[in-house]
Design a binder for these strands. Structure first.
Lengths: 137, 137
DNA sequence: AATTTTCTCTTGCATTTTGCAAGAAACAAA
DNA sequence: TTTGTTTCTTGCAAAATGCAAGAGAAAATT
């Protein structure tokens, strides 16, 4: 159990203390945009996250109250991970990362989704938030 | 000279390949929100970045076309760093990090600025973009 | 009942990155 | 000529990451 330490009182710095690495936000992406919820599903992503890193990040996210680990119904050895409101609230950050990334790199993002984000950002965000809350139930 | 490698064609992943660490976005914050532009100024931030890390990140950001290094007028040994449009375009990401951080951590953000971001995000972003372009001249 | 498969991690170890402290290099100022 | 400013560089210890193998618990299959 390592204690969390903010480097400063700056909100950006504090956010990065939790989200500032190459993997954490990809887990949130998998949950929010790809409907994933299990350890095995996270491992299958194109970026090939190492198993120990994934386990570490899941513990971290849970420790920060961003997701909850739930035993799958009828299967004691399978778990599903669901976002809390704090986790869902990272959606606008992810959307801006999508827009910046799609603008400045060669990516394979769906043009329809991109257009949805560009023209109706607020509506799109609300839609995905609703989706995340539904999967929780 | 290390070559840049995208882990996947996902725009979020690609963004994180460049921005996904604990320091890069703090440099952009210092330029965009605090009007900083020199190595010495970046070093003075509350988070106390190590000198070698700062030097490395500045090289990286320049390599990615996000900022330019300019010799200060009349001083050959002093440089100023200015953002390109690609760098300025990270502003919405930073604003979302501010909002999320201010919402979920104890921070010392100015309440006026926070309100400005909450109620008139688009306008505020344009204002800071304009500011960044002005300092460039 | 025994075996195999599924699923979630854990462990050991090499590599890479970070953090820290000291100092070097280039120029400016006194 | 000396002192100061400014931007890094270097060496080394510590921490994080990446990789491969496998452990452990439950579920499914034979």
């Amino acid at each position: 159990m390592k204690s969390f330490k903010q480097r400063s009182a700056c909100p950006i710095s504090s956010s990065l203390d939790v989200l500032g690495d190459k993997w954490t936000l990809l887990i949130l992406r998998d949950i929010l945009f790809k409907g994933k919820s299990t350890y095995g599903e996270f491992l299958q992503s194109a970026e090939k996250m190492a198993t120990n890193i994934l386990a570490d990040r899941l513990v971290n996210l849970e420790a920060h109250g961003m997701l909850t680990k739930v035993v799958a119904p009828g299967k004691k050895s399978k778990f599903t991970y669901h976002l809390t409101e704090k986790g869902i609230a990272t959606l606008p950050i992810l959307v801006e990362l999508v827009l910046w990334g799609a603008q400045h790199f060669s990516t394979d993002i769906d043009v329809g989704l991109l257009e949805e984000f560009r023209t109706g950002k607020g509506v799109a965000i609300e839609k995905y938030k609703r989706l995340a809350r539904e999967t929780l139930a």
